[in-house]
Design a protein around this nucleic acid. Structure first.
Length: 575
RNA sequence: CGGGACGUGGCGCAGUUUGGCAGCGCGCAGCGUUCGGGACGCUGAGGUCGCCGGUUCGAAUCCGGCCGUCCCGACCA
């Protein structure tokens, strides 16, 4: 491609309000443009990168036996009703009606459609299957952000495994796990595979692939000494035991005028009401039902754990009026002692605790001497608290680290939820029918692209790894007006293309500084610079984008040298 | 959804407080000089000031409503 004919609209200024580095660079370097919040156009450079990502994914999916499909992006409401997700997903699903006023949804994911197709498999002999597609997904995110990292319309590679039984599912899941690591490594990423919450997908087990980055929205807890790693939505930790009294006298009220927070109470009764001795009482509305959620005073609730524990589709903190109506007190004076009207969920860290302090369900009054097991009617004990950096690893006791990252992939063991809903059953070798056991696996392509940029850039611009670079080489002609330079450039470009290399020829009549700066901004991994001074001595220059080391090389040696560098770059992430 | 901010040529912004010819930088076009690390001079094109309504002799500016976008918090590839 000739740069003079290409649509590569680079900008001198940073776009306004672009916080994430990848957003800034992808806009400035002419890869993407925003159409509306959460909807981006892929310009030619962006499209080329996405195609390369797609090719890597296709190769690795085909390598584990995947078959590619292409399903509709728009679905009749009926199939979503059948799985129960028409109601469960809520506002995050785009919905529309056709001219006959029939209801449709824009595909949020494709378990339903694939499960429907799976009804055509009659026998265990047809299993296992690995089905995938690369297709647009629509999610009405409440707040799209960070450029292409979190959008409302994006491309996803989604795949689904269909198996007769759990061991089959485990095998398909592990195949995906390994394939995903290969895919991301070939993109030049080094993701961490962590235990995760399954969220709206349901299912029993899931693993996320996280690229460490300050622009990421996920927080991950890891243990350097034993390798434990989990999303904080799921992570646990071992707590130091708290020395409680052997026995405590009866619960007793005491006046706490004006006190509304854990910190105020701890300060007012120094030594007797440290946060670890307090019970934090939160009220949530879980699928419409008011529920009291208890945690230790110094712990924070991890809402996803609450959702997972209750299998709720919608939770929210209760409003002050709702709380007052149910418990007779304002937030800040709540407690579970004697609260029999509403169910109580308690965090495991409270189990067996004695000598605790909590609200009395009367404003300005608290109670002491609480023995949790004796005095509170706990409906369920569950892990609800958010782990904090420095707490002990649940596996080995070493201190945990907590860091931020970008979720580029997520794999789920689904089970039989969808196959049962759609009647996707096969007969085994005894003639007995079984619902197909499903797994589901996703990669967000544009997000993965942005993650590469977050991971691989410098102060001058993007530094693409060769396997995903829009062009592998840019041939920069320093003086376009010089006939010998252009002739040499045309010849080298022809030879490189004949050798299978993706080449961009910078034949623009611009000053050299502009051309170098643009090449660095858009991040082409290798540059071949041709100028009259060098040509007079029979040499051209080769430059690596990463580090910008430049060396002169004989014109005749240039093509094999560049091909060797490109070939080496293409091997990134391959075993 | 809660909190904060913004909307003015393609991009980045000033002008709004105190109503009075719509500006600056970059980019773009033409000419000339330059040209191996984001050149310079001259000339020029380009704007429904987000939209609708109101106040006023007069509105980018004041008032009301709406729309859009960004950032911080609760949700997900």
């Amino acid at each position: 491609m000739r740069w003079s004919r290409a649509f590569i609209p680079t900008l001198r200024d940073d776009p306004a309000d672009a916080e994430a580095v990848s957003h800034r660079l992808l806009v400035r370097a002419g890869y993407i443009r925003q159409l509306a919040a959460g909807h981006y156009s892929m310009l030619p450079l962006g499209q080329r990168v996405r195609s390369k990502v797609e090719r890597i994914i296709r190769e690795e999916m085909d390598a584990i036996g995947g078959q590619q499909f292409h399903l509709p992006a728009m679905h009749p409401a009926e199939i979503w009703r059948k799985s129960g997700r028409w109601d469960a997903i809520g506002d995050e699903m785009f919905r529309l009606r056709d001219r006959k006023s029939a209801e449709f949804a824009l595909g949020f994911t494709h378990e339903e459609v694939f499960a429907l197709l799976a009804t055509e498999l009659p026998s265990y002999r047809d299993l296992p299957q690995i089905w995938y597609q690369i297709q647009t997904k629509f999610r009405d995110e409440p707040r799209p952000k960070a450029g292409v990292l979190r959008v409302r319309e994006f491309t996803m590679k989604d795949s689904y495994t269909l198996d007769l039984d759990r061991p089959g599912l485990d095998k398909g899941f592990d195949l995906h796990h390994v394939a995903y690591l290969r895919i991301f490594r070939r993109m030049g990423l080094d993701p961490v595979d962590v235990q995760a919450s399954s969220g709206i997908m349901g299912g029993t087990e899931s693993v996320e692939f996280i690229v460490p980055s300050p622009a990421g929205e996920d927080r991950i807890a890891t243990c350097a000494s034993c390798g434990y790693r989990a999303n904080v939505e799921r992570a646990t930790s071992r707590l130091d035991p708290v020395a409680d009294p052997e026995q405590v006298p009866e619960v007793e009220e005491f006046d706490t005028p004006g006190i509304r927070t854990i910190a105020q109470l701890a300060a007012a009764f120094a030594g007797d009401a440290d946060p670890v001795r307090q019970i934090k009482s939160l009220v949530y509305v879980i699928d419409g039902e008011l529920t009291l959620v208890l945690l230790r005073g110094d712990h924070d609730l991890q809402e996803q754990k609450l959702i997972d524990a209750t299998l709720a589709t919608a939770i929210r903190p209760a409003r002050a009026e709702e709380i007052r109506e149910a418990l007779g007190a304002s937030p800040g004076s709540l407690g579970a002692v004697g609260a029999s009207e509403i169910p109580v969920l308690a965090d495991l860290a409270l189990k067996g605790r004695r000598g605790m302090v909590t609200g009395a369900n009367r404003d300005d009054v608290h109670v002491r001497n609480v023995d949790v097991d004796r005095d509170i009617n706990v409906a369920r004990w569950v892990d609800l608290r958010q782990v904090v950096e420095g707490e002990a690893c649940p596996e080995c006791g070493s201190p945990l680290e907590v860091w931020k990252g970008i979720e580029v992939g997520h794999i789920f063991k689904l089970g039989t939820k969808f196959s049962e809903a759609f009647g996707a059953v096969v007969q085994d070798d005894q003639g007995v029918s079984h619902p197909i056991v499903m797994g589901s696996y996703g990669i967000g392509l544009e997000r993965a692209m942005a993650a590469v940029v977050e991971w691989s850039h410098d102060e001058l611009g993007i530094v693409w790894p060769v396997p995903v670079a829009p062009y592998e080489v840019v041939v920069t002609v320093v003086r376009v007006g010089d006939g010998d330079s252009m002739a040499a450039a045309e010849r080298l470009v022809g030879e490189l293309q004949a050798g299978g290399v993706d080449v961009l020829l910078d034949d623009r009549d611009e000053r050299p500084g502009v051309k170098f700066a643009d090449a660095e901004l858009i991040g082409i991994p290798h540059r071949l610079t041709i100028g009259p001074n060098g040509l007079a001595r029979g040499v051209v220059e080769v430059t690596r984008r990463r580090g910008l080391e430049t060396e002169e090389i004989d014109v005749d040696r240039a093509v094999p040298e560049v091909i060797a560098r490109v070939t080496e770059g293409r091997r990134i992430g391959r075993a």
